[in-house]
Amino acid sequence: MLGVTLFRPGPEQVERLCALASAGFAAVIAFDNGGLPAGAAERLARAGVTLLSEGTNLGIAEALNRIAAAAQAAGAGALLLLDQDAEPPGDLAAALLTAQDRLRAAGIPAAVVGPAPAPAPGHKAPAYPPRPGAPGHGDLAPVQFLATSGSLVDLAAFARVGPFRGDFFIDGVELEWCFRAWSLGYSCYQTRAVAIPHRVGGGTIRAFGIAMPRQPLFRMGTYLRNAIYAWRLPHVPLRWKLAQAAYLPLQAGLYWADSGWRPAVLLRLLAAARDGALGRLGPPRDLPRDEPRDLP
C-alpha cells in the first residue's frame, strides 16, 4: 500500500500522484494537510486515490499516523510512504519489499527499510548515520534513522513502536520514531539497491564545510525546537545528543547569517530553543495559513 502526504500541492504534483495511483499499487491513500487545489480532490478520486483530510494542517506526523491507521484498517502489512515532491524510481517498491523479506529471513526485525538518498538539483541529500553494533546484511546497512519519504514501514512493527509524535508536527519526526524503534528491539535499514532524490527546503546553505537546507523560518525554528527537546528523551542515544549540542549552534548561526543577520530571525531561533528546552511543542505559531489554490 502507498501513502502520500500533501500540503499545497501544485498541478504537477497532483498529476504525479494520479500517475502513481495507476502504477499497480494495491491501494493509494493520501492525506491533505491543507491547500489542495480546487478540483484536485475529484481528480484524485477518479484516479483511485483514497483522500483523507481534516480541512486544516495537522502536521506531517499526524498525517502519517492517519495514513498508517487507514492502511492497518484495510489489512495492509506494509506501507510505502512518499511526500508530494517524491519522484520514486519504478522499482522502488519491489526493491524495498525484497529487502524487507531478506531481513526477515535473516531474523532481523526491521521496522522500516528505505532507499539510499540521492541529491536533487540544488538540494542537499540527507545522510543517514550508521547504527553502531548492528549487523549489516549484504547491501543492507543499519542506520540510526531514515527519511519517511521513500521508506517502507512494517505496520506490525508500527503498532508496537507507536505513532509518530504529533506534537513534533513536522521536523525530526522520523528521527525520533526510528530511535524509539531501535530502543524497542526493532531496526532501521537502508538498501543500496535503489535510490531516491530528496528535496528539502529551497536550496542549500553552505559555509565552513557545512551544508544544510535553506528552509522557511518556521521550519528552521521547529527543527531547532524539536532537536533540543529530544535531548530529554531516554531513547535518543547520548552520542547523538552530544553531537547535536555541538552542531545545532553552528546550524543556527549559518541560518542567521544567510538571512542577512536580521534581528527578527535571531529572536525567532532563540525562542525556538527556549520552547524546546521548556517542552513547548505543537504547531509553530508562525505556520503559514493553508489556503487552497486553483488548478489551471
Rank of each mutant, 00 (worst) to 15 (best):
N65L: 11
A26L: 10
R214T: 08
T98R: 14
I228N: 03
A95W: 00
G201Q: 05
R285W: 13
R16T: 08
L175A: 13
A245G: 03
W182V: 06
L238F: 07
F7Y: 14
E15R: 14
L6K: 05
P130H: 12
L140K: 07
L79P: 04
G10F: 02
P284V: 09
R268S: 15
W231C: 11
L269V: 10
W182T: 03
L52V: 11
R199N: 02
A195E: 11
L36C: 05
D32C: 05
S22Q: 10
T5F: 06
P216N: 12
H123N: 09
L217W: 10
V4N: 07
L96Q: 12
L20M: 12
P37Y: 05
A120R: 08
F145H: 15
N33L: 05
A61R: 01
A227H: 01
A264S: 15
W240H: 06
V194M: 03
A19W: 05
A116Q: 11
G201F: 04
L152N: 09
R104A: 12
A245R: 13
A30K: 03
Y223K: 12
L281V: 13
A118G: 13
L92F: 13
R46W: 02
S53C: 00
R239A: 14
A110F: 02
P292G: 04
L17A: 00
L184W: 07
D286N: 13
P11D: 06
P109E: 02
S22C: 00
D258H: 15
A38M: 00
A111H: 04
I170A: 14
I228G: 06
A68T: 08
D286T: 14
G166W: 00
G276P: 14
Y229L: 01
R180E: 02
A230E: 06
E42C: 06
I67R: 03
C178G: 09
G162F: 08
I67C: 04
A211F: 00
R131H: 13
A159M: 01
V4R: 07
P37A: 00
A30S: 05
E87N: 10
G90T: 09
A47F: 10
T98L: 12
V112L: 06
P117C: 06
I210P: 11
A211N: 14
K124T: 14
A61F: 01
R8T: 11
C188F: 00
A156P: 07
R285C: 02
P213R: 02
R285G: 12
A40E: 07
R225Q: 07
P249F: 08
D85F: 06
V112W: 02
P142W: 03
D258A: 14
A71T: 11
R165I: 05
I67H: 01
Q100D: 13
G75P: 10
A69N: 03
A76E: 14
P11H: 11
A181M: 02
Q72R: 14
G260T: 04
D85H: 13
T191E: 07
D85G: 11
F145Y: 15
G166I: 00
A26Y: 00
G59I: 04
G150R: 07
A181L: 05
A227Q: 15
A27Q: 11
A181F: 02
I210F: 13
L20N: 09
E12A: 15
R274V: 15
M212W: 00
P288K: 10
F218W: 15
G34K: 03
A26S: 15
